Lab assay of single mutants.
Amino acid sequence: STVKVRLGHLEVTLHNVSEEDVRELRELWKNGADEEDLRRWLEEWKK
């Protein structure tokens, strides 16, 4: 499914993403990950 995730002022649209992935991303964000960390996660996730 396609999910729009809003993290601060960063809005990311993920395609074919699982609930688990979204949860993981939100956890990262809650734990103080900055945009760099999130971008890195997204790069990994896209592979």
Rank of each mutant, 00 (worst) to 15 (best):
S1F: 15
S1Y: 15
S1W: 08
S1V: 14
S1K: 12
T2M: 10
T2C: 08
V3L: 11
V3N: 01
V3I: 14
K4F: 03
V5F: 14
V5R: 01
V5D: 00
R6A: 07
R6D: 02
R6P: 02
R6T: 13
R6W: 14
L7A: 04
L7D: 01
G8F: 02
G8M: 03
G8T: 03
G8I: 02
G8Q: 04
H9E: 14
H9A: 14
L10Q: 10
L10A: 07
L10M: 12
L10F: 14
L10W: 15
E11P: 01
E11W: 15
E11H: 11
V12A: 03
V12R: 02
V12P: 00
T13E: 08
T13Q: 04
T13W: 12
T13F: 09
L14K: 00
L14F: 05
L14P: 00
L14S: 00
H15L: 09
N16G: 11
N16M: 05
N16Y: 07
N16A: 05
N16T: 02
N16V: 02
N16Q: 05
V17M: 10
V17G: 03
V17I: 10
S18K: 10
S18L: 06
S18C: 04
E19N: 08
E19Y: 07
E19C: 07
E19Q: 12
E20P: 06
E20F: 07
E20C: 06
E20H: 11
E20S: 12
D21Q: 11
D21V: 09
D21F: 14
V22T: 04
V22H: 07
V22I: 14
R23C: 09
E24H: 11
E24D: 11
L25D: 00
L25E: 00
L25F: 06
R26I: 13
R26D: 06
E27H: 06
E27V: 05
E27D: 09
E27K: 11
L28N: 01
L28S: 01
L28C: 04
L28K: 04
L28G: 01
L28Y: 05
W29R: 04
W29D: 02
K30L: 10
K30M: 12
K30N: 12
N31E: 05
N31Q: 12
N31H: 10
N31F: 04
N31I: 05
N31V: 06
G32Y: 04
G32M: 06
G32T: 03
A33M: 08
A33G: 09
A33P: 07
A33D: 03
D34E: 10
E35N: 05
E35S: 08
E35F: 10
E35D: 09
E36D: 13
E36A: 12
D37Y: 10
L38N: 00
L38P: 01
L38H: 01
L38F: 11
L38S: 00
R39C: 04
R39E: 06
R40D: 05
R40L: 11
R40K: 12
R40E: 06
W41G: 00
L42G: 00
L42S: 01
E43N: 11
E43L: 12
E43W: 10
E43M: 13
E44I: 11
E44A: 15
W45L: 06
W45V: 06
K46Y: 15
K47M: 09
K47L: 11
K47D: 05
K47I: 08
